[in-house]
């Protein structure tokens, strides 16, 4: 179709008058400036698509090279040895560590983030509320390497006490058993990731809560509801899908986080049920740790694990977008 159509919707669908010179009325006379501009902007859009296609294509290509050279099952092997004549590597440990640490981060961060969002939107004194929202937005911009540095040098030493306490009382579950040593475990990673995704989950949830219809809240108040009942009956149902998509965005971030995990975790290729003991690994952390000593084949193997991470984050983000889009249809 003619891309000019929107600007001149009443242009007659007739062929242009032959050699009538530039007609000032007809929309069919495309000016060169317009053509160049349209070309530039459409070209940029297409470039973006090409880049996305190239990412998928090249990652898949290098991954196929790596997986076909793997002498063990890529999905179930509990080892990462991509050098030598008989490379054996698999992503089982990485998938376990990535999913567990990201889910832990979600479980810790989402309730707290919803709490802060409610605090800013409904509880805080008004003079405090808008600067707080501003500060939360600023904190979302702190680079992840700084969280990593803080996590490794400040958080880890401060968690050993808590961990041995957890071990004393909950050690029998197997999940919370802890033998002494630095707290460089998946659980610490989960806590750090939770702190990292707090600002983003909070700021998205806060925006949704602020959009809750004022009339509903006032109606509930007029019926004598307490503040909590107002929130439970009119704010939370309205904001539920927004909170879900915010947490999915946070989950996407937690899954792909590299530096904060690489600095805090002391990795090993074991799946252990004890989350407090050091060990385990995540996709991104493993890439960062193994990259410098990898040869070309080793890098291909890391690219293959990166492709798995890519697919997982795509699925999570796609689900989040789907929820947002469905909500738009309703409101």
């Amino acid at each position: 179709m003619n891309p000019q159509a929107p600007s001149t919707p009443d242009a007659p669908p007739l062929p242009p008058p032959p050699a009538a010179g530039p007609s000032p009325v007809s929309g069919k006379a495309v000016r060169p400036g317009d053509r160049i501009f349209l070309g530039l902007s459409r070209g940029s859009g297409i470039t973006l698509l090409v880049v996305m296609a190239a990412i998928a294509a090249f990652l898949t290509y290098r991954s196929v090279l790596a997986i076909s050279g793997d002498h063990a099952n890529f999905f179930t092997t509990l080892d990462w040895n991509a050098t030598g004549t008989e490379p054996r590597f698999g992503i089982a440990v990485l998938a376990f560590g990535t999913v567990v640490s990201a889910l832990l981060a979600m479980v810790i961060a989402v309730p707290v983030a919803v709490g802060i969002a409610l605090f800013i939107s409904h509880y805080a004194p008004r003079r405090l509320a808008s600067p707080l929202g501003y500060v939360i937005d600023l904190l979302a911009a702190v680079p992840s390497i700084i969280y990593g540095l803080w996590g490794a040098l400040f958080l880890v030493p401060h968690l050993t006490g808590l961990y041995s306490w957890l071990d004393d009382y909950l050690g029998w579950t197997g999940i919370f058993s802890y033998s002494d040593g630095a707290a460089r475990s998946l659980f610490t990673v989960g806590i750090l990731l939770a702190i990292m995704i707090l600002p983003i989950v909070t700021s998205v949830s806060r925006e949704v809560f602020l959009q809750a219809p004022k009339m509903h809240e006032e109606a509930a108040l007029a019926l004598g509801a307490t503040r909590w009942e107002v929130i439970r009956m009119s704010v939370l149902p309205f904001g539920r899908s927004g909170v879900i998509s915010a947490s999915m965005l946070g989950l996407g971030r937690a899954l792909g986080e590299t530096m904060a995990v690489a600095t805090v975790l002391s990795p090993s290729f074991l799946i252990s049920t004890s989350l407090l003991d050091p060990g385990g690994g995540t996709f991104a952390q493993n890439i960062a740790a193994k990259f410098s000593e990898a040869d070309t084949f080793g890098q291909d193997a890391l690219i293959a694990s990166g492709l798995v991470l890519f697919v997982i984050t795509l699925l999570v983000n796609g689900a989040a977008r789907l929820i947002i889009a469905r909500r738009k249809e309703y409101s």
Partner: peptide, 20 residues
Amino acid sequence: FVDVMTGIPSIVAGLFVLSV
């Protein structure tokens, strides 16, 4: 795809440029 691209982990972008 702009939405999809927003969610790319930074290390995956690095791996892509590395591979090409």
